[in-house]
Design a protein around this nucleic acid. Structure first.
Lengths: 197, 197
DNA sequence: AAAATTTGTTGACAAATATCAACAGACCAC
DNA sequence: GTGGTCTGTTGATATTTGTCAACAAATTTT
């Protein structure tokens, strides 16, 4: 359990940064989160399953994706320190329209939807921190919407460089391409043009 | 004030639908919201100003927009019953990167950021309802991200028809086009092709 | 109601990106 | 390490959408 506390340190710090949480709430969180090591290439959540857990990504890299026709589209890329869910599915406990998989070996802290609801019941003040976190994610998402409306492929790729530079080497290019909504060949050409300048 | 209560009925109902609110909280909300009639074509929030208010759109139609280069991009379209803010600006009280304007005569209920914070302080349980509302908006936004990654213009326009059909006649086509990230001419052609079928 | 302005339509053309295909390089399994 | 599979690169071509321009239609202003 001491191990739990160490791995969850950055989550606790995130929460305390918003507003200090009580020792009781901290203990409840540390007790409810289960640590999991997951190897690269595993699917955490399958499309059509209900997202029954929230994960805190202690270390690693993930992506969510869904299919349109015969194409697979990467919708989000999530790295160390992120809270991971399939939003629509987790919030409403209905089947997911996307899958989530690991792009690297990951250490994850898993919290079930039911345990989270119990925590909310016992510690209603926790809604404050989670409201603010949801607001932050909301705003980040807004920026991704801006990105997708940028005119050309290089503007989109620059957005990616500004926001995900640290993970560039670890994310297969075809996933970056579909995240930016361009063909992998176009991304390859955009990159080589950029390298020449 | 009785008038206030009527106009805010659907907001109160929205909150009660999540979890019944106390009479005290209801009164505080009704007292803090100020009703405003705003004519079509007025700018509620100017880019670079801080979004100091949240609005509940009792009746009418709004859009948010920002400029990229010499182009104006419509980022959101909001109709009766929506809560309206510029997310990044309101949450963090920093200058907005977008403007918000009325597309029709509107009846708005305005709540200042500071009044909202006072309400949160006095009624911390209110965080519960607002967390859930933020989650709902978060999920809606995710769907708009899906839409922008749809391949062609007609798929994007169909998304619009599915989600904004009731407001189709009231929104100038050029705004719909930039919302869908296509040129107005392309939208015009897409529509005429669709009509022939 | 007429004039002026804005918005939407249509055509011709240009530009960007997608698609298809061949190949090279990286990565994985055995 | 070798063979096989998957990923990325590059070229040729097709398709889609954007751009520019002229005009029509609708809306606003006077």
């Amino acid at each position: 359990m001491q191990n739990n506390r160490n791995l969850l340190a950055s989550l606790i710090q995130l929460l305390n940064g918003i507003q200090p949480i009580s020792k009781e709430l901290e203990s409840a969180l540390v007790n409810c989160f289960k640590i999991e090591d997951v190897k690269k290439g595993k699917v955490l959540l399958h499309e059509k399953d209900i997202c029954k857990n929230l994960w805190f990504l202690c270390d690693g890299l993930l992506r969510s994706y869904h299919n349109i026709g015969d194409k697979e589209i990467t919708s989000r890329i999530m790295y160390t320190g992120h809270i991971v869910i399939s939003p629509g599915s987790f919030f409403t406990q209905t089947p997911a329209t996307e899958s989530i998989e690991t792009l690297a070996d990951c250490i994850l802290a898993k919290l079930s939807f039911t345990d989270l609801q119990l925590i909310y019941t016992k510690f209603p003040e926790f809604n404050y921190q989670t409201r603010l976190i949801t607001e932050q994610y909301f705003y980040k998402q807004e920026q991704r919407l801006y990105m997708l409306r940028k005119h050309d492929a290089s503007a989109k790729y620059n957005f990616f460089l500004e926001n995900y530079a640290d993970y560039l080497k670890d994310i297969p290019q075809k996933y970056i391409a579909s995240f930016l909504n361009i063909a992998p060949e176009t991304l390859s050409r955009t990159r080589s043009k950029l390298a020449k300048k």
